[in-house]
Amino acid sequence: MATKLIPKELAKRPDRLSPGHRLCAGCGASIVVRQMLAAIDAPVVIANATGCLEVATTIYPYTAWRVPWMHNAFENAASTITGIEAAYRSLVRQGKIPEQNVKFIAFGGDGGTYDIGLQALSGAVERGHQFLYVCYNNEAYMNTGIQRSSATPLGAHTTTSPAGEVIPGKQQKRKDLTMIMAAHDIPYVAQAAPSQWRDLMQKTRKAVDCGGAAFMNVLASCNRGWRHATDETVELTQLAVDTCYWPLYEVENGQWRLTYKPKEKLPVEEWLKRQGRFRHLFRPENRHLIDELQAEVDRRWERLLRLCGET
């Protein structure tokens, strides 16, 4: 029997990520990791791409991980986990180690996933290994000091897309990686957010039990990069969901399903105005970027509703 997705029940098992890691106060990444790993009853083995999560949780001679964990390099978390998973299948098949229903998970940030690790990820899921790749997406290269990635939204200020006198932040739209992964036609793809923790946990369970490759894109605020107070992490993630900037959905064996529909779709401005990285957009000469962002959100939301049979 799977543990019920009730916090009191989940808390009965020791945390798989210990305290004493050195992620910033209010970091969204460790919330995502804790919730996801709490949802899985089976043993897990983790590969972690270079990034905040990797660096801050394993500063030698300390590790915050209570499960087998490995970091290889930046762009290869997906290929590394497939090597581990292939080793497991091989050794189990040959009777060299026992079958223990081990779940294999790779964690990478948006830089390690959307950008430098995309090829390895695409190859790994195409090969059909049984693993879950999780992109904890904070929409920029936070570990190196907030540089733009292809997950960074239009208009956002980062240190390589600064809001200057002439150019008001990032000039390009963000890539829709969840759609790209869905196009691989793998058993399970989902988009989630820790503010909707039960949804995140349910998706995690489906993903690790889907019998093949799974991908989850999980929004994880970085208060240093997004520029908000450390206690607003969960709230701002939820605002991204309620503005439909970050819709929650899943694609299970080709079936698209919206897993959360906001009671009232809020204007994206409600989310933008709470973050310092978008502050310059509220100057009169930049307001058009907010309109563009709203148009992008609307267009993508409408498309998603159609795919999910909601219209």
Binding site: N72, N76, S79, Q119, G123
Partner: peptide, 28 residues
């Protein structure tokens, strides 16, 4: 052979998967 043969999408991934598999405890 009993080998799990991983037809990777690049040599970078070939060596990455080899390192993962070797760390896992396999002969690679």
């Amino acid at each position: 052979v009993n080998t799990e043969f991983i037809c990777v999408e690049s040599e970078h991934s070939a060596m990455s998967a080899c390192v993962g598999a070797s760390a896992a405890g396999a002969r690679v």
